[in-house]
Each structure stands twice: as C-alpha cells, then as structure tokens.
Amino acid sequence: MSSSKKDRRRLPPPDPAPLPGLIDAHTHLAACGGRTPEAVKEILDHAESVGVTHVVTVADDMVDARWAVEAARWDCRAFAAVGLHPTHAGDLTDETRAELEQMLTEPRVVAVGETGLDYYWTTRSDDCADPSTQRDVFAWHIDLAKRTGKALMIHNRDADRDLLDVLKAEGSPDTVVMHCFSGDRHVADECVDRGYYLSFSGTVTFANSDELREAAHITPPELMLVETDAPFLTPHPYRGQPNQSYCVPYTARALAAVKGLGDADMAAILGANARRAYSLPLR
C-alpha cells in the first residue's frame, strides 16, 4: 500500500450533508475513543450536527458493558446494549450473569447484546468460545431479553442456519434486531417472516454487496434500521477509514436509493423504527 493511501486510511471521512431524524442503531463509543464524558459529548455533538440525534452503544464483553452503561449516563443522546459477544461467551459466570441482569434494570439500557453465534473466529482464535458454549450462552441471553422485555441484539457471523434454529427453538423475544445484517435474500426473507428488524451498516454500500442490497430491497421499510458498527465498516467510498456515528447519513441515503424512497422519507422511517425497536425514552 502506498504511503498516500495509508495516510488516507487514517483520515476520518468528510461530513455528509445533514439528514435529520436518524438514530445510529449500533455503535461502539468506547472503541471510537468515547471513554470520558467529554469525548462522548464530542462524538455525539458531531453526529447531531448532521442529523443523527441518538445512538445505541453496544458491549462486546463485561468491560465494554460497563463503559456502555456509563456513556448512557453521561449523555442523554446515548443508550446502551449490554451482553457478551459470542466470541466471549466463555466469560458468562454466576457473577457476570448477576451483573448483566442488574444492568438491564436501568432504563437507559435498551437491549440485550450483542449476542448470537460467530463461527468465523472459532477456527481463527484460540480465545474464541466453542460453538456449543456459544449456543448455550446465546440461549441464556434470549431468555434474559424475554424476562426483561428488552430488545435482543443479534451478532451473526457464518452461522445463519444454526442461529435461526436456536432462536426458533428457544422462542424469540418480542423484538429481535439482526445487527449488521449480512445474509442473502433468503435469510432476509426468513427474518422478515419472523418480524425481526434488519439493521444495515456501511457494508450495504460496498461494491461487492449486490446480494446484501437485494436483501435490503425485499425488507419492508418498517423492519429496517441503520447503524455504523463504528469504528468499523465505514461506508463507500471511505471504506477502511475510521467510522463514527456522524457517517450514518451515507448509509441511510444508500438505503433510500435501494428502496426507491426520498432521503428525508427514509431517514424518518429509520428513526421511527429505532425508537420503536428500542422503546427509546428520548430525554
């Protein structure tokens, strides 16, 4: 890679034209540098300046869960999701169960997750929980979402069939969010039949994502969310550069084009869907 290309990859994308009414349905504020009240405020001020009024910041592990809850306390524009990423499923103990259950009593914690199955890392990382442990811990998270009445935020990587089968066997909670949806049109169709929300990230803008755009095309607008998964998955043409919640309008406009809707109409739908999915108390 040339030095100029390396330099460009370190630069944040330029601000998109503002698109009011959007909510980032899944971000990681701590991983974006939001580890103090001042840093969180700076990230959310930037997002709000282009129309992204609120975010849901998400945990991968217990350390991240504590950060997420703190961020939601620091700034009224942030809400939290807490749980154990499937690669960290082995961290579920009596103590972490109790701590997660306590976190879910907080009104600004609006979802359980991200949880699910990740088979990609089982063969690539010695630290990744094995599939059997992942499935058991996923089932516990499903039950937790049902007990607390919170949305269930799903992480799925290379595990489409098993993940959908576990959800069916355990019984889905009222609200399921398929974070960073990456399946094909057939997986999308099954999720839609079950009434799950499909949350689309910057990957839907990538040149090699025709099948994902087809999945978005067949998803009813009322079941669509938009997210960054920041600091990852920056939308085209800024792929590989640092992502933050202010980049949501790029993906929202791409979804509008896929759906044949006006940008403002798409933004209004996506924002309303996020408020409904997470029962957001916007205060």
Rank of each mutant, 00 (worst) to 15 (best):
S3I: 10
K5Q: 15
L11S: 13
P13C: 05
P14M: 12
L19I: 09
L19S: 15
A25S: 14
H26R: 09
A31G: 06
C32V: 08
G34R: 14
P37H: 10
D45Q: 05
H46C: 11
V50K: 03
V52D: 05
H54V: 03
V55K: 01
D60A: 15
V63K: 10
V63F: 12
V63P: 04
A71Q: 08
D75K: 06
C76F: 05
A81G: 08
A81K: 01
D91C: 02
T93Q: 06
D94L: 03
P107C: 10
V110I: 10
E114T: 12
D118H: 00
Y119S: 02
R124K: 15
R124M: 11
C128S: 10
S132M: 06
V137M: 02
F138M: 08
A145S: 10
T148I: 01
N156V: 11
D160S: 08
L164A: 14
D165M: 11
L167C: 10
E170H: 01
S172N: 03
D174S: 08
S182Y: 07
G183M: 09
D184Y: 02
R185G: 03
H186E: 14
H186C: 06
C191H: 13
C191P: 10
V192R: 09
D193L: 05
L198M: 00
S199P: 14
F200M: 08
T203K: 13
V204E: 07
T205I: 04
R213W: 12
E214C: 02
A215G: 14
A216Y: 05
V226E: 04
D229Q: 15
A230R: 14
P235D: 13
N243K: 02
N243W: 01
Q244R: 15
P249S: 10
Y250L: 12
Y250R: 15
Y250P: 12
T251V: 07
R253D: 10
A256G: 15
A256N: 05
A257L: 06
A257Q: 07
G262Q: 03
A264M: 10
M266I: 12
A267T: 06
L270D: 02
A274G: 09
A277K: 03
P281Q: 06
